[in-house]
Design a protein around this nucleic acid. Structure first.
Lengths: 222, 222
DNA sequence: TATCGAGTAATTGTATACAATTATACGTTC
DNA sequence: GAACGTATAATTGTATACAATTACTCGATA
């Protein structure tokens, strides 16, 4: 079912290429590699103790993800994500998360509803305790569950990639208690809409959930 | 500006990896490779007279595009696009093309408006002459121009990939004179909305333009 | 006959070698 | 001293070699 997805996240860890891929990706998303920095195959290979071959394959994949831009015969450079890109991604997500929630009304299973409910329950607990790392993790889980409940591998894939892209920003916004609380409340509302199969409402709430996040980001001046 | 985009489309033709990438991609999208077919590195390399190295890189990229699914230590298999996938893509596009047209109202330049107008003018000519290959090509150009006019490299990239995915279907639908004519008329309306900077109208028209296409596809039973 | 297993072939994963291209250093020329 | 050009080094592109894993063949056994 979601085999293809699992592959990217899990199996990759057991191949050199996958490890290199994650290493560079995290490096870019975390800001360890800076904008326009040249990524030399030999250097990265030496860093991780592998040859150029898996490094090259990882770079080619990252190019397709848009995090690296490759100039033939010249080199690979960090593309990075600008503030505008992040804003664009959130706006795009606001539409697609709405669509995703709508589709989830038609495809979600009882097991998935239970899983989502559990995640929300845990979120409330960790939010009240101020365990923000767990809150971020649970926020991811919530959204991934909705993605897989929409019944479209295409939409699931798109949203997963975008979700990962903005991980750094999510960590910041969700570390504010006020936003974390409100976010969890919004999650609950979305779940209820999906559970009652109210497509219009689910789409509207999921859409607005992302819009709220954008407003929060702008308030922080990120 | 749109360097990254050009790279994927143009420069790739001048490297073995790029040629292999396009070869396999077209093979999958055109149906030459069938669903679940195993893509062996040696076989494809021999087909194109290259070694395994560029083939491997191309396969890894295609995995990320979702057209190929790779099972570690086992092989690469054609994922293909199901009818449902195509329907999903069009629905996703209906939202994103709307957003794109909205953003284009704010970012389009006079040169771009002129270029779009020219494409539409040519489309009308070739539609009336029944030159359907040119019509398909011009339809691509129209959409790509809008994509690049939206001022978001993220959205431009997403829509470009989706647009390419459904190329086979587009070729069929646009080969019907009635749909081709109506499509061109809709393009004109979208252009006018963008030119007059009417965001709401542009988004609505672009959205509906894709919805019409979906209806057409369903009517044909594709 | 069906099933299991050892051995072999085929295929992928990684490293290395070589070719082609690009960047750099440095001396020459004006 | 600045600009140019050539030689050298560094880097990427591709092919090949070797290792590891998986698939297959085929005979032995129940």
């Amino acid at each position: 079912m979601s085999d293809a997805k699992l592959q990217n996240d899990k199996d990759d860890k057991y191949s050199l290429r996958g490890r290199v891929f994650n290493h560079i990706r995290e490096g870019i998303l975390s800001g360890r590699y800076e904008e326009n920095e040249e990524l030399k195959e030999n250097t990265i290979g030496a860093e991780l103790g592998v040859s150029r071959t898996p490094v090259r394959e990882a770079l080619r994949q990252l190019e397709l993800e848009g995090l690296v831009s490759i100039i033939p015969n010249k080199g690979a450079y960090v593309t990075g994500i600008s503030e505008k890109d992040i804003h664009d991604i959130y706006t795009i997500r606001s539409y697609l998360e709405g669509l995703c929630a709508r589709w989830a009304c038609e495809h979600v299973t009882d097991e998935q509803l239970d899983a989502i409910e559990e995640v929300i329950y845990l979120s409330e607990f960790h939010t009240s305790k101020g365990h923000f790392e767990q809150v971020v993790e649970l926020d991811s889980k919530f959204h991934k569950l909705i993605y897989s409940a929409c019944g479209s591998k295409i939409l699931e894939h798109e949203l997963s990639v975008f979700h990962h892209y903005v991980e750094r920003v999510r960590k910041i916004t969700l570390s504010m208690e006020e936003r974390a609380k409100r976010s969890t409340a919004e999650h609950t509302a979305i779940l209820n809409a999906i559970r009652s199969r109210d497509k219009e409402l689910a789409e509207k709430l999921a859409h607005e959930h992302i819009i709220r996040t954008i407003e929060n980001i702008e308030k922080l001046g990120l």
